[in-house]
Design a protein around this nucleic acid. Structure first.
Length: 919
RNA sequence: GCCUUGGUGGUGGAAUGGUAGACACGAGGGACUUAAAAUCCCUUGGCCCGAAAAGGCCGUGCGGGUUCGAUUCCCGCCCGAGGCACCA
């Protein structure tokens, strides 16, 4: 029998599906292991060869864990709400549900060909009402909760109302927006609308005005992580800053816990670091400055991390969007300030970032330095951000480079505060040195001065210690159609949650997927979009809503009473291994952690961190091929000769290039303008140039996994993707190397079959055969646990060489089990041919016996002063002293010792002998 | 600018401080074949010396250091990738 991969793969894929081989069932008698892939957004382009990389890695791990006796949960689903389907709908009028369903079907058929061990009974789709019912449910829970800073957890909003009735706003320490203090009596006297407005400031899902990223081209607001360099991540449209009222999630309340949790999870350092930067904790102080404007006087709070530099404050700066701007603009400066504001506020995000020039305007007001009593001018400049700290700063030009640039531009004084620091050309930003010009801080080091200054400030009631976070609340509404509707209606203009029984609130049908004429979101087009006569919210939830808790839903996907049952959650708990791309570092992976912690606070889940271990698979890049055209002609020059002509490189489809040799006939047939192409050849061949680029249609370097499955089989594809290099590293796809792993599988097959002859015999294996087998078992275990799949495959190839001609059942059976995580189809086929009726999935992983792999003798390389000269072969049982003796007895030693003396001999057991010589 | 990574043959890549380049691709040579495919065997980092066997020197981005011994550890540079970027 030959290795007919097409037949084998089809046969076993059908068999697995029919037998539900990979069905996961809660089984408390076994340890659980939860392996999760980041579920894909089903795009219209289908999968290319880079997409399944992480899926193959997680599949290998899942299969390995099953063999090791774990009860494995390995599900898959689709992140199906999203902008591309909706953009397509706007263009074609086709319902996004339809395109999404088509794309899902295509994805599924592509995934199925690769032989994954998913439990498809647990599939979820975020756009399915039965699924998004629980997304809406979570939103309602967040709407009905507030964050108690004292207890550091979310609590029901009823507790807050009770506290207000008891002691007014002072009774709680909560994460909240701007609230005017009120007493218990005032609270009780508030109208329903006033109460609603106050509570809105405390809710975890709340409506609030803030500066948001507005993308006119997409007609929607975007979250910070959806904006890259001033353009929308999807579509690349310009983004503007705009003040708008939007639904938001109080992610900032969880900043400290999101940061702390990173220490308890097994993620890569770079990813943790990205999240730490995104959360951006900074420790400092808030300080109050008296400010005066046209006779009026106010207390203005600023945030600083350098309280030690107060003596060097020579001016203050407000963000253009700050509320202080209106209060602190003097009558005489009003015209200038207005002109400046107009010019600044119309710029989009991109233009603001691109502008390197320092801009600003004097407000006309002055602030009083609380330590020196000196008056300094208050300026307005766009280099101060409205959203961070208090939107106002004290400027210390001597020791902050941004303040320095501003001071230079507007000729403001610069007072150096650190001994020996030269600030004539640039500021001295480092937190080191000895203080001067700083009153009571003189003589202290910066490290001592910072706390000393804050102590002083606190003692004198000027300010207090404060930790600030950079992370903002997540903007949670989108003015789009294809997303979860908010289960909220408006009664007399008050946002009111729908009752749980009303869920899921399904998306209404609309005639067009565009905004209305008067700029309302698409849902405003829906007829009867109201609940019991009250109008419903018309924006929808963003993409990350549906992906924030999907891992919980997989545990119990068909439950219509709860997101996940207590039993299922207590058994599966959280994800043991999560594999996905690093591009979600500051989006999905923050939101999920937040969402999970919220559910944890309310007692719905038992673990506060959702993903215990996380691996980032590296991107698979494309390898593009080029032909070299002589401009203005139809002549193409082979790569080796291109420098002799004036040429320009042109991308050529990698699928008509073999081993960098162009198929010239296929090239002429490829595009009409090339049908008369002439070639200037080297050695009768046309050699193409190549480069590593992103895999994309426009570079003609996309390789489709289906095509690889057709010509080599899924097992070869799986093996090759892993063999390409370390999982976490970015690497180019080059189909030409695939023959190597394909040959390996054919060789493996030939250990069982010589054409039509079945070779397997029941003979005792030799010691050498056992050694080869157990070396491989040891290596595979070690490698899989560390995700070094590429070296496992090498070890397999070596083992096959060592086992050449061996067809003993006692060797081959374990080999099949060892191979099954990597190449499940061929393993399943051979496993059944060996007489098993059950799937190889239920086999037991072979026990590693170290004794078999021990060497009888050891080859020691012998070095003289570090340079290796020869090797000696000594029994493995020799002690270092015996090894040394046998080396010194070797006649080759004399040759190298000639004229020298042996100073000492270093024997590293099992490794090397080094003889140190001296004159 | 800051943070995180990485830099090894023609290519992808191996190496708990211990014979650098495993394994694979490609290339070259050979066997089988009318031929091709498939399969199998040999060679393959560079240089020097030799008829050959053997032998020697240089080599892991660059420069130092620690060590008997460094791709690996330390210090300083250079280059590439990813992230953050007026966060006071």
């Amino acid at each position: 029998m030959d290795y007919n991969f097409l037949e084998i793969e089809k046969k076993w894929q059908a068999w697995w599906a029919a037998n539900k081989t990979y069905k996961a069932v809660t089984d408390p008698s076994k340890p659980k292991y939860y392996v999760l892939d980041m579920f894909p957004y089903p795009s219209g382009a289908g999968l290319h060869v880079g997409h399944p990389l992480g899926y193959i890695a997680s599949d290998i791990f899942s299969r390995y864990k099953r063999l090791k006796g774990f009860n494995v949960l390995h599900p898959m689903g689709y992140d199906a709400f999203g902008l591309p389907a909706e953009q397509y709908a706007i263009q074609t009028g086709q319902h996004p549900e339809k395109t999404t369903a088509d794309n899902v079907a295509r994805y599924r058929s592509q995934l199925d060909r690769i032989g994954f061990s998913y439990d498809w009974d647990r599939e979820v789709r975020t756009c399915d009402p039965a699924y998004y019912k629980w997304t809406q449910w979570a939103f309602l829970k967040m709407f009905g909760s507030w964050y108690d800073n004292a207890m550091q957890k979310a609590r029901p909003i009823e507790d807050l109302e009770a506290a207000f009735a008891q002691g007014g706003s002072a009774a709680v320490d909560a994460a909240c927006g701007e609230v005017k203090p009120f007493s218990a009596e005032e609270w009780k006297a508030f109208s329903p609308r006033e109460k609603a407005d106050v509570l809105m400031q405390y809710r975890i899902a709340y409506q609030g005005e803030s500066t948001v990223n507005w993308c006119p081209a997409l007609g929607t607001v975007l979250a910070n992580d959806e904006v890259k360099d001033g353009y929308s991540e999807r579509g690349g449209f310009p983004v503007f800053q705009k003040k708008m009222t939007q639904w938001q999630l109080r992610v900032s309340a969880y900043a400290a816990r999101l940061l702390e949790g990173l220490d308890r999870i097994d993620w890569t350092d770079s990813l943790k670091e990205m999240q730490r930067n995104w959360i951006g904790r900074s420790q400092g102080a808030e300080m109050v400055f008296k400010v005066k404007c046209d006779g009026a006087s106010y207390d203005m709070t600023i945030f600083t991390t350098r309280a030690d530099t107060v003596f060097g404050v020579t001016f203050m700066v407000l963000a253009p969007e700050s509320e202080w701007v209106a209060k602190l603009t003097s009558a005489s400066q009003k015209a200038d300030v207005d002109a400046y504001l107009e010019q600044v506020l119309k710029k989009n995000e991109r233009e603001r970032m691109a502008a390197k020039a320092v801009t600003g305007v004097f407000s006309g007001s002055y602030a009083v330095n609380p330590l020196t009593g000196e008056e300094v001018p208050v300026w307005i400049s766009e280099y101060v951000l409205a959203g961070y700290g208090t939107g106002a700063i004290m400027a210390v030009p001597a020791h902050d480079s941004r303040d320095y640039a501003f001071a230079k531009k507007f000729n403001l004084p610069i007072i150096p505060l650190i001994e020996g620091a030269d600030v004539s050309e640039e500021s001295f930003d480092a937190k080191e040195g000895i203080m001067m010009n700083s009153g009571f801080l003189n003589g202290l080091s910066v490290k001592e001065a910072i706390p000393a200054a804050i102590d002083y400030v606190e003692a004198h009631g000027i300010g207090h210690r404060k930790v600030n976070f950079r992370i903002r609340d997540a903007i949670f509404s989108r003015q789009r159609y294809w997303g979860e509707p908010f289960p909220v209606c408006y009664k007399d203009g008050i946002a009111t949650p729908l009752p749980m029984e009303a869920l899921p609130l399904t998306l209404p049908e609309i005639d067009q997927y565009k905004p209305t004429e008067d700029g309302q979101p698409p849902l405003a087009r829906a007829k009867d979009w109201n609940y019991e006569g009250y109008p419903l919210e018309v924006s929808t939830m963003p993409g990350f809503a549906g992906s924030s808790a999907y891992y919980l839903r997989y545990m119990d996907p068909h439950n219509d009473k709860a997101l996940v049952s207590k039993e299922a959650d207590e058994y599966w708990r959280n994800v043991d291994l999560y594999i996905g791309g690093t591009e979600h570092a500051t989006g999905h992976l923050i939101y999920s952690r937040f969402w999970n912690k919220f559910l944890y606070d309310l007692g719905y889940v038992v673990e506060d961190e959702p993903f215990r271990k996380l691996i980032n698979q590296g991107m698979i890049q494309g390898r593009s091929n080029f032909v070299y055209m002589i401009p203005g002609t139809n002549k193409f020059v082979s790569a080796g000769l291109k420098d002799r002509y004036e040429t320009i490189p042109v991308h050529v489809d990698v699928n008509i290039v073999y081993n960098d040799r162009l198929d010239m006939e296929a090239f002429r047939a490829w595009r009409p303008d090339y049908k008369d192409a002439e070639f200037i050849l080297e050695d009768g061949e046309y050699v193409c140039g190549w480069a590593v680029e992103k895999m994309s249609k426009s570079m003609y370097n996309v390789v489709n996994p289906d095509q690889i499955c057709d010509t080599y089989g899924a097992d070869t594809l799986r093996l090759y993707e892993m063999f390409l290099g370390p999982l976490e590293q970015a690497k180019p796809w080059d189909t030409k190397g695939i023959d190597g792993v394909n040959r390996f599988l054919k060789k493996f097959w030939r250990m069982f079959w010589d054409r039509e002859k079945w070779l397997v015999v029941d003979e005792e294996p030799t010691r050498a055969e056992l050694k080869a087998l157990h070396k491989l078992i040891g290596k595979e275990q070690e490698d899989i646990e560390t995700f070094s799949y590429n070296t496992t495959i090498s070890a397999f190839m070596i083992a096959l060489g060592e086992l050449q001609g061996c067809s003993k059942r006692a060797i081959l059976e374990p080999l099949v089990i060892l191979l099954s995580p990597f190449a499940p189809h061929i393993a399943e086929e051979l496993w059944h041919q060996l007489g098993h009726e059950d799937s190889v999935v239920y086999a037991k992983y072979p026990e590693y016996v170290e004794e078999y792999t021990a060497d009888d003798s050891v080859k020691y390389p012998v070095s003289f002063n570090g340079k290796t000269r020869f090797t000696v072969d000594v029994p493995a049982s020799y002690s270092p002293a015996e090894v040394e003796a046998s080396v010194l007895a070797n006649d080759l030693t004399a040759k190298y010792v000639e004229g020298m003396q042996v100073a000492k001999v270093i024997v590293v057991p099992g490794r090397i002998v080094n003889v140190v010589l001296k004159k």
